[in-house]
Design a protein around this nucleic acid. Structure first.
Length: 277
DNA sequence: CGCCAGGGACAAC
DNA sequence: GTTGTCCATGGC
């Protein structure tokens, strides 16, 4: 099916953004997205016109929400005042097209536990291997197989060597314990969406292997708490270098997480560029 | 406090 | 080719 999407949507930028690890560019401009047990192929035909290999029902029932198309990111960008904050303004201009996907909280919890102390290519490898090892085998619209993200039961019941072989290293027990908690019903992740962000953070950081950074990522990308602001080494550098007098969190509430994403991706790009020059 | 755990990417030598 | 550094968290 073809869809007109008026708001910001840049597949390449989202794919590289560090919020999703199962997007693959399968041919120029065409992306395969695996989310939970679903698989979509999507391509921009021209400005604002996209081709998707799913039915209208599946688009309306899943992918519209996944891509957060009910939110206007253009409007969120327009709230930035160039005179007051040149750096954020430039970051948002440069990274226009990024959205905060509405991803599954369970999938985000496990993915970001794995992400600690890894770079993006390494996270992709681990997550893909975990899906191959413990996920349900599926077939996409093109007749090719792919693997669904593993269920809590599947991970809770997996053997140690299976997890080890996915390159999880010392994170194995974190993944196993989190899976057990969700499988047992001790941890109800979807219910955290309804709670305030602070309570959600406290619950998440109560898990072994989940510190402040991982919890904020789960909150932002899995619970869609758009004000959640993950601070990693890159963001720390931005805050130190660009905002020596403090970052105006109050001014940017409740969209701190969206602006964090613009700054994160923008700063990483300009740093990598100046490194290689 | 400082170090270590396990390991891939990437830069520097 | 080989070595060094990065990275987020918890345990010691």
């Amino acid at each position: 099916m073809q869809v007109r999407i008026e708001d910001d949507l840049d597949l390449k930028k989202i794919s590289a953004s560090g919020q999703c690890f199962r997007w693959t560019e399968i041919s120029p401009g065409k992306y395969q997205i695996i989310a939970q047990d679903k698989c979509l192929r999507i391509k921009a035909l021209r400005e604002k016109l996209f081709e998707l290999d799913c039915s209208e029902e599946e688009y309306n029932g899943f992918w519209f929400n996944y891509l957060d198309l009910g939110e206007s990111y253009e409007w969120i960008r327009r709230r930035i005042n160039r005179e007051k904050d040149e750096f954020l303004f430039l970051a948002a201009e440069y990274e226009k097209g990024i959205r905060i996907l509405r991803q599954n909280p369970w999938e985000m919890l496990i993915t970001f536990i794995i992400s600690q102390n890894k770079n993006i290519p390494a996270i992709r490898r681990s997550v893909e291997k975990l899906a191959e090892t413990c996920g349900q085998e599926m077939t996409n619209e093109a007749g090719e197989r792919y693997f669904a993200f593993p269920t809590p039961d599947a991970l809770a019941g997996s053997r140690d060597e299976q997890l080890k072989q996915c390159g999880l290293g010392y994170r194995c027990s974190y993944v196993r314990d989190a899976a057990q908690a969700v499988a047992d019903g001790c941890l109800d992740l979807p219910s955290l969406k309804e709670l305030d962000e602070e309570t959600a953070m406290t619950t998440l950081t109560g898990l072994s292997g989940v510190g402040k950074k991982v919890a904020s990522c789960v909150s932002l990308f899995g619970l869609h708490h758009l004000n959640s602001f993950p601070i990693d080494v890159w963001i720390k550098r931005i805050l130190d270098e660009q905002y020596p007098n403090g970052y105006p969190f109050e001014d940017y509430s409740p969209y701190n997480g969206v602006y964090q994403q613009y700054m994160f991706d923008y700063y990483r790009k300009i740093s990598i560029r100046s490194d290689t020059e």
